[in-house]
Design a protein around this nucleic acid. Structure first.
Length: 839
DNA sequence: TCGATCACTTAGAACTGTGCTG
DNA sequence: CAGCACAGTTCTAAGTGATCGA
């Protein structure tokens, strides 16, 4: 089939014909390509891109929307004796999460939603077979080993082989979607108000604004308790029901944990009746749909945030016109921020320097000796800083360890939160230290001083009954304390660079709360499979609609579907000038006859997207029309913005938005790739196979990274190594010839006589050398190919981890080879997937 | 209806740790 | 054992999209 591009939207499933995706230089840089490093290379050529085949099986539609309806709530810790037994699937065990003091465990994740959607049978089966039911108790009691190790990853029998069979996957999963959802009445609103019957609650959401109600220290008594209780009950029972019915039940995967932080531990204890309970409680949390409205948690405890230490002046004097200058500590602090950056690219940019100078100058005052940046020499401070760094590096291992431990001791209490009785890691508990704003690309605010944040700017969100964290800076207090359980943040402050924006403190990715939403994200993307056929048919139809707005929506949707473009919200003038689909400018797309489009624009993070792709003739024609009579800098889609686009998408599938296509595209691509014949061989080979699939996704999503500073020199080294090997080979060949003729080998480079070897021995050496050379060449190629491709982003954000876990099980690859520790924790919810899972 | 606000996900760079190599 | 590449983690910027409120 010579890839013809046509991506016919309606392609039937089997059509997965790859669209030709020609990508030329994907460069990572921003506009000015001046920067050398950035110039990118060309790789990516011609990678065919497959538009996945997705067929929609007759659309079943389940309207299941993630959880909006169920009123359930979580049980409060302590109660819930019920605790649904959790089963551990064997798979779970496969993962060896070792000790780690993290608690993981997430409550029962409900797989609910999703699980529900998935074929029950299969899950059941799997569970039945593998699962071990734990009854009771706590995991503590049970040997970790059991739960964890045993990696039998593979095993499963399912042979992937028949791809054919699997293809229908969609059906499989899809159909299974069962309608449970239908019912759900729909989705409704998530407005907080709705849900809140209680006045109290209702007040909550708005608080964003001010919420006076909560003031510090108030330990309120509140009705909350009652509330809670109710909810809890409900939940439980509900959940149980559900669990039972589904049989699949529970889920919880827990990972045990050994918690260490005493303080929290104490709290836990306090809070819950017993540890056991606490564990259990987790299992009850949030039901699938539990979001009763918007409730994200019932109890929340944490210790607030930690602030960076006050500035310690170093007294090193910078020079102005060659002479040392005295600076106050405040002035010195900011000078130091700049000084340590003088060897970065930021400082090369005028905007950065101007912004810095502007802000620093305010601190210096009008009459300061320093009157212009150009005459400043920050080198002494820079040198001092380098020396400090060196000193640190030179510390003995013990010293380093001691320092680390000290730091840990100070921070430990901030590292954890207790959410509904479960200890969870906090993500960013450190308040951002002052510094110079490092905007990406040509950000107009780059270089501005990002001031220090004080506690009086920080709002804390915590459970009503929890102790309000003490403000870590004596004499100061929090700006505000809220008790808003409709949000997941633990604290926030206004971004000093952009005061209208906020910086939030959230739980870590390994938390149940995040895990749950991650899972929902993938379930939604999976659901798109069932709709994609209709959606494609619809937009294809609309390419020729009489209504221009409709045509724009159709074309935009097509691009988002086919190219996995981002939606493209409007941006302010004080942000870098980047675009997404809806904000593409005329100049960003060039029509190349007969029906190709050449895209070239700066996307998120000012990463350049360059791609030429063949499109449907109708699309080609429309794009040309949209461009007619417009200036280069005009919007290509003038009748469109993301909210209109998303509103339209929502009509096609509940909950559908533009970003879902990216997730869908990425995951289905991985799934398809991994169902191709997997290279047999050792784990390393399999990993290469996996990475290749991952790479395809990264290319589709345009995930790039800067070429490392040392790339060139590294390549040079490899080249040298290669040529050394080649000369060795040559020598060996000569020796072989001589040996065959009964002559002794030539002397080596140092003039020494080499050992006499038999032709056989030499042949073997030659074969080895050839092998080495081939491997080296391959490594070099790979290294060069990958120098601008970032695999991590898709792994973390776009690829349904169940696809990977299932593949690992099928091919007996230990999951740790693919997911590092942090990802194992983040994806704990996906570990018990069936080996034959299809996205 | 629309701009502003808020919450949360996605992103690459910077930093840190670690294991290999010579 | 130092110096390195590379892997993994941390940091925080930059997106998306829902909701608010006029």
């Amino acid at each position: 089939m010579a890839y013809q591009n046509n991506i016919n939207p309606n392609l039937s499933e089997d059509d997965e014909e790859p669209l030709v995706f020609k990508r030329s230089a994907a460069s990572k840089q921003n506009q000015s390509n001046t920067d050398t490093k950035k110039l990118s290379s060309q790789r990516y050529d011609g990678q065919p891109r497959r538009v996945s085949d997705v067929h929609s099986s007759n659309g079943v539609n389940s309207s299941v929307q993630k959880g909006k309806m169920a009123p359930s709530t979580k049980a409060s810790p302590g109660k819930s004796p019920t605790a649904i037994p959790k089963e551990l699937s064997e798979q779970n065990k496969a993962i060896s999460i070792k000790e780690e003091n993290i608690p993981i465990e997430h409550p029962a994740e409900d797989n609910s939603d999703s699980d529900d959607e998935k074929p029950i049978n299969s899950r059941l089966k799997a569970k039945i077979n593998n699962v071990k039911k734990e009854d009771s108790d706590d995991e503590d009691d049970k040997p970790l080993s059991t739960r964890v190790n045993k990696s039998n990853v593979g095993t499963s029998g399912c042979k992937p082989s028949d791809a054919k069979e699997r293809k229908p996957l969609v059906q499989k999963n899809g159909s299974s979607t069962i309608d449970k959802g239908k019912s759900s009445s729909l989705v409704s609103g998530k407005r907080p108000l709705d849900k809140a019957n209680h006045a109290e609650q209702s007040a909550i959401k708005k608080p964003k604004i001010a919420d006076s109600s909560t003031s510090i220290k108030s330990k309120q008594v509140s009705a909350k308790t009652e509330l809670k209780a109710d909810d809890d009950d409900m939940t439980l029972s509900q959940r149980m029901k559900k669990a039972t019915s589904a049989n699949k039940s529970s889920l919880t995967k827990k990972t045990v944990t050994k918690v260490s932080s005493s303080s929290i531990q104490k709290k836990i204890q306090k809070g819950k009746k017993t540890d056991k309970f606490s564990k259990y409680s987790k299992s009850t949390r949030q039901g699938p749909s539990s979001n009763d409205g918007q409730k994200k948690w019932t109890t929340l405890e944490h210790n607030g945030v930690i602030f960076p230490p006050p500035y310690k002046p170093h007294g090193v004097k910078m020079l102005y016109n060659g002479k040392p200058v005295n600076l106050t500590p405040e002035q010195e602090e900011v000078a130091t921020m700049y000084a340590v950056m003088i060897d970065t690219e930021y400082v090369q940019k005028k905007t950065f320097r101007d912004n810095f100078w502007n802000d620093w100058r305010k601190l210096l005052g009008k009459n300061h000796v320093i009157q212009k940046l150009d005459a400043c020499d920050f080198k002494p401070i820079y040198d001092w800083y380098q020396k400090e760094k060196e000193k640190k590096k030179q510390m003995s291992t013990e010293e380093k360890k001691a320092v680390k431990e000290e730091k840990l001791k100070q921070e430990e209490k901030y590292m954890w939160a207790v959410v509904d009785g479960v200890k969870e890691k906090v993500g960013n508990f450190r308040v951002e230290p002052p510094g110079l704003f490092r905007g990406r690309g040509e950000h107009p605010k780059s270089g501005k001083l990002k001031r220090r944040i004080s506690p009086s700017e920080v709002t804390i969100n915590i459970g009503k009954d929890a102790e309000v964290p003490e403000c870590p800076i004596p004499g100061e207090r929090w700006k505000e304390v809220r008790h808003d359980n409709t949000v997941t943040w633990l604290a926030f402050w206004n971004d000093p660079i952009n005061p209208k924006e906020f910086k939030y403190v959230f739980l870590a990715a390994s938390s149940a709360l995040k895990g749950q939403s991650d899972k929902e994200k993938y379930e939604k993307a999976r659901k798109l499979k069932d709709y994609i056929g209709d959606i494609r048919a619809a937009y294809t139809r609309d390419f020729t609609s009489r209504d221009p707005a409709k045509r724009q929506i159709a074309v935009a949707t097509y691009l988002i579907d086919k190219l996995a473009l981002r939606a493209g919200n409007e941006k302010d003038d004080d942000e870098a000038d980047t675009v997404g689909c809806c904000t593409l400018k005329v100049e960003n797309v060039k029509a190349i006859p007969p029906n190709s489009l050449e895209f070239n624009f700066l996307g998120k993070d000012s990463i350049r997207y360059e791609n030429t792709v063949e499109v449907e003739p109708a699309v080609y024609k429309e794009i040309k029309k949209f461009q007619e009579g417009k200036k280069d800098s005009d919007d290509l889609f003038d009748k469109l913005d993301t909210s209109k686009l998303n509103a339209h998408l929502k009509e096609l599938m509940p909950g559908l938005t533009a970003k879902v296509f990216r997730t869908y595209n990425a995951s289905i691509t991985l799934d398809n790739e991994l169902y191709q014949e997997t290279a047999e061989g050792d784990v390393l080979k399999k990993k290469v196979f996996y990475d290749t699939a991952n790479k395809k996704v990264a290319i589709i999503c345009n995930h790039q990274r800067a070429v490392s500073k040392s790339h060139e020199s590294q390549m040079d080294k490899l080249k040298e190594k290669l040529s050394d090997l080649q000369s060795v080979l040559k020598e060996l060949k000569t020796d072989l010839d001589r040996a065959r003729n009964g002559k002794p080998p030539l002397k080596d480079a140092d003039g020494k006589q080499k050992r006499n070897l038999t032709p056989e021995a030499l042949q073997k050496k030659i074969a080895d050398a050839n092998k080495k050379i081939d491997k080296l060449k391959l490594d070099m190629q790979t290294k060069d190919d990958m120098k601008t491709i970032a695999l991590g982003t898709s792994k973390i954000n776009y690829l349904d981890p169940r696809i990977t876990v299932a593949w690992c099980k099928r091919h007996e690859v230990p999951i740790e080879k693919i997911f590092q520790k942090a990802l194992l924790a983040k994806f704990a919810w996906a570990m018990d997937v069936d080996p034959d899972f299809r996205f």
